[in-house]
Design a protein around this nucleic acid. Structure first.
Lengths: 187, 187
DNA sequence: CCAGCCATGTAACGGGTTACATGATTTA
DNA sequence: TAAATCATGTAACCCGTTACATGGCTGG
């Protein structure tokens, strides 16, 4: 099983509709999990059938009705059981790294282009994480928040995501500079 | 398509049998790709059918015969085409992060235990990467090797893997200390 | 003598991705 | 008036994981 626990963990922050969850999985959770809306709707239906979450209909007049979900006690128990089962390090599957692995037998030009794009994207993500971290800790400084805040889980995963993207950025920039220096482009 | 390019990139280092590849995918490539032997045998068969790799039988007397594979020109062309197609950042799926996301609504004890295990595993992996980096660059220092070495691809991906595991370790240790301080264990 | 390594697969299953489908409301 | 947002799904497909299967040689 896989996505189910990520969904349960996400729902701990409050009520969400499938659509809102999809947004969350596109930003805040995207550092360690990602899912397209279709997958989320399917998973929510499954979790509800199993009684791990409960949905309630919300009628709206200006836009389509929606269903909001919350984690049930059974859902919490499921999460507790999940933390008790040993987790394997996940296998990262990164196309860009495959390209770099092969780069010295190929024309580096397109790889360099992709590295530059990725560096920019990573920098943008770092800023997103920074904003989210500031929002999560409110007026408190980080140290105080981590010592006394009452919902530090999302903050901690955000910190990990931020580090990852920062490293990503630096690595992409380093490799770009290096490949440039080794194979100077014409013009 | 997915694994195919990782296999092609791995085969650039020389001839490999399915079994040897499986080893490689367990160590050197494991920072950005992972595959079990069964998957590799299937993928190698497919790549050979498509003419992207060529296999040759090697008869052995002390142990079972094996087939060694090399990338063909068509395979190189496939890799070149691959570098030209835009790559999306991969979705990381990390159970341990899901657990931390949920940790302040659950008993942190098992999560702390897992974080500690992971920190140790990450530290071990950093050392493996260090050894591999030393092996790859031979007697050269890093700067010289990166400027003049003729096969820097694997070195660069290794560097990324090392950074990742180092960050992983530091994060795990930080979170462990934090959760410990917030919820002191009895005894 | 048993565990582990070398060596290569088949088969079933589960989960994730892509494509397709619908339709109202708000913003540019 | 076109695009984006809100809102929810179905269906087909591909890929990856797990379980099962075989068999000889080497080292403790």
């Amino acid at each position: 099983m896989a996505l189910r626990h990520a969904v349960l963990a996400a729902l701990l922050d409050g009520e969400y509709s499938g659509y809102q969850l999809a947004k969350a999985f596109d930003v805040s959770l995207s550092n360690f999990w990602y899912a397209v809306p279709q997958q989320l709707y399917a998973e929510l239906a499954k979790l509800e059938r199993e009684g791990l979450i409960a949905g309630r209909q919300v009628i709206q007049h200006d836009r389509p009705n929606k269903r909001l979900f919350t984690v049930t006690d059974a859902g919490l128990a499921e999460l507790a059981a999940f933390t008790a089962t040993p987790s394997k390090p996940s296998s990262i599957r990164e196309d860009l790294l495959v390209m770099v692995q092969a780069v010295d037998r190929l024309d580096p030009t397109p790889v360099i282009a992709q590295l530059e794009e990725r560096a920019v994207a990573a920098a943008a993500k770092v800023e997103i994480f920074d904003r989210m971290l500031r929002r999560l800790r409110g007026e408190l400084d980080e140290e105080t928040f981590l010592r006394e805040g009452d919902r530090i889980g999302p903050y901690l995963t955000c910190l990990r995501g931020r580090r990852f993207e920062q490293e990503n950025r630096e690595w992409c920039e380093q490799v770009t500079a290096l490949l440039r220096a080794r194979a100077p482009l014409p013009g």
